[in-house]
Design a protein around this nucleic acid. Structure first.
Lengths: 211, 211
DNA sequence: GTCTATAAATCGATAGAC
DNA sequence: GTCTATCGATTTATAGAC
């Protein structure tokens, strides 16, 4: 009994350390991106030696994968917290608003779509792919429902809506507008939510907050 | 006279070589991005030694600046070719369509907004800043006109529209949809043009080609 | 598991001969 | 100006003591 408890405690400490690593990686990926981020600065930020870090994660690509898994799980947790009775299009808007808030908070990791070794590593990362597919499936169901309800353009290919929502989570326009300093974070989010769902031409429905 | 012509010819050869360098850099920036692109592969692609390349451009950042100047000048040339009598919103749509065509052709260089040394170099590059401001001013004038004509949401901050148009030129959604292989290049462009101006909710005006 | 120290490879930039 | 050769710095990853 005592031995079991000791092992469990050790594992908890280990998990806490790994979580600290992933949190650090997540912020560096949001600030500098994968290519500029170095494993040295991650280890220094966590406060451990680089060799110790490699005992937890076997490569830089795996670090990025862990950060992506974390943000996908945060997304799934947020989606699960939404009221089930709401309109599908409002669920989609709520998710889009939340991802923009995460990005403005400097917590949205962005990976370069061009890096081939990173892509290969992610495509072989089953835990990552599972979460990605789970998010995609749930968003896809809402997109279908919103199109049937007439709240989303029915002539639009569903994957276009899905990719557009994913891309808005790391839209550089957020950073540009924040850097200009002329708008509050809330104003930026509401304006970009409007351009995302109503377009630059505007004039259609107002963007409503979820209850 | 003969000497003058000889010098002019030499300068023409030099300009042609520099242009070949910039074309190569442009394609690498579109394919891999600034951080992954190496000066070695640019030199190898052009067919000269790296030291020779550094006789033309004094740093990797200056190479990127030259590529950005080139694409901005191509943009200005396209904008100047548009009919002057058309509606401002149609001019904006024509520019958005053209930038997406350039990206799908693999000729749109994309620079990371996070790299600080690159940003510092570009902010000190007057020829680049001049072209960037010229493009911004002309687009800004069309945005103002389109808002006054009621073709663009008047409640939208003009800079939001400007940044959104810039960002659509390097929107990763284009690459994702092309990779899915389910749509032609033209279909992709028309769908994204629709989501850009009419939003995901859709239902408003159809997207018209310029005459 | 954590550390110090270092291997191995790469990259930006330059020296110097021609 | 173009070349070969190399410097100096950085980065990913590992070896080996504790």
């Amino acid at each position: 009994m005592l031995a079991m408890a000791k092992v469990s405690f050790k594992e908890q400490v280990l998990r806490a350390r790994e979580d600290a690593i992933v949190v650090s990686v997540n912020r560096f990926l949001a600030e500098k991106g994968f290519d500029v981020m170095t494993v040295d600065e991650v280890a220094a930020d966590v406060g451990i030696a680089k060799a110790s870090l490699y005992k937890h994660f076997s490569s830089k690509e795996e670090l990025a994968g862990a950060a992506m898994i974390r943000v996908l799980e945060r997304t799934l947790a947020f989606m699960a917290s939404l009221p089930v009775g709401a309109k599908a299009v409002d669920q989609l808007k709520a998710v889009a608003r939340w991802t923009m808030q995460v990005q403005l908070a400097g917590e949205m990791p962005s990976l370069p779509a061009q890096n081939s070794t990173l892509r290969a590593s992610l495509m072989a990362n089953k835990p990552y792919l599972d979460r990605l597919m789970e998010v995609s499936d749930k968003l896809g169901a809402w997109i279908d429902a919103a199109q049937m309800a007439g709240d989303l353009n029915p002539r639009l290919a569903p994957e276009v809506a899905l990719y557009t929502l994913f891309a808005r989570a790391c839209d550089p326009v957020l950073g540009l507008l924040k850097a200009s300093g002329q708008h509050s974070d809330e104003q930026i989010i509401e304006m970009l939510l409007s351009t995302c769902f109503d377009g630059l031409s505007g004039q259609t429905s107002a963007v409503n907050r979820p209850s």
